[in-house]
Nucleic acid binder design. Sequence first.
DNA 1: ATCAAAATTGTATTTATTACAAATTTGCAA
DNA 2: TTGCAAATTTGTAATAAATACAATTTTGAT
Lengths: 150, 150
Amino acid sequence: METQSEVIKRLERFGVKPSLQRIAIMGYLMDNLVHPTVDTVFNGLSSSIPTLSKTTVYNTLKLLARQGAALELSIDDKNVRYDANIFLHAHFRCKHCGSVYDVPVGSCEALTVTSIGDFMVAERHLYYKGYCGKCKAEVAARAATAAADA
Amino acid sequence: METQSEVIKRLERFGVKPSLQRIAIMGYLMDNLVHPTVDTVFNGLSSSIPTLSKTTVYNTLKLLARQGAALELSIDDKNVRYDANIFLHAHFRCKHCGSVYDVPVGSCEALTVTSIGDFMVAERHLYYKGYCGKCKAEVAARAATAAADA
DNA sequence: ATCAAAATTGTATTTATTACAAATTTGCAA
DNA sequence: TTGCAAATTTGTAATAAATACAATTTTGAT
């Protein structure tokens, strides 16, 4: 659990004026590094802040991403996900259960470039998609059953 | 413009039975390497195939991606995009105009791994986001105007 | 205490995608 | 050729993420 002052420090470091809602949302991200969706954040906070609006969660998460205080992941076709871990790392998404995991990456020039030709590069995302250990087994088992049926 | 037989060859190579619609959609992707969305593909083909259904476009593009005949890009938060270029390369998306461009990548271990721990890796996506040459200038000009107004 | 700017809220809308059932086409076997 | 089941395509209805926007509340300076 992050201390309130640590959360405020992070907000201020990225030029975000701390409000009750922003502190709660930033704190939630820092405490839950599982790449939550907007809905997950909203549901996680709405009991402690009953007046919280989902619009605020949408706006605040977008703001945090724009200011660099969090990452906005487009690894999931359905929902945008957010990540308070702003250090260089990659992500893996299981195509079966949908979970998103952090993956460490070695230093690689392609992951640190700041420009490509006349493009200005602001973000670099390395996404892996496949099957996690648990689902790999499940999918294999199901494939075997399907084969037996046919 | 790809020949019909080249398109059919690609479909068969990836285990997709060629139908009129599938050939048209695969051919459209091969002729339009600008990472079109479902809507773009549908609009591009509906005049030549008036009976074409958007559901078929959705299903077929998903099928092509599943079979490996095309890539499904999640670089755009709004729409899924498709790419017939299945050779190793990265993508850049301009945050202002939304265009998606191909970017060559040097060989990098992180871009060729087939497993990570007990994860089975089926896809690797390297996405860059930022501003293309044209939009970089526009955004800078607008920022200057905003500063003058304040 | 006043008041404008900033932030938050809630509702209404938009729109990409999926679900699903009906219709059509395909390809094989009688 | 005819019949028929499987595969494919179509069209409509439903789902749900995200945005627009106006109203309300809060903040902070004077």
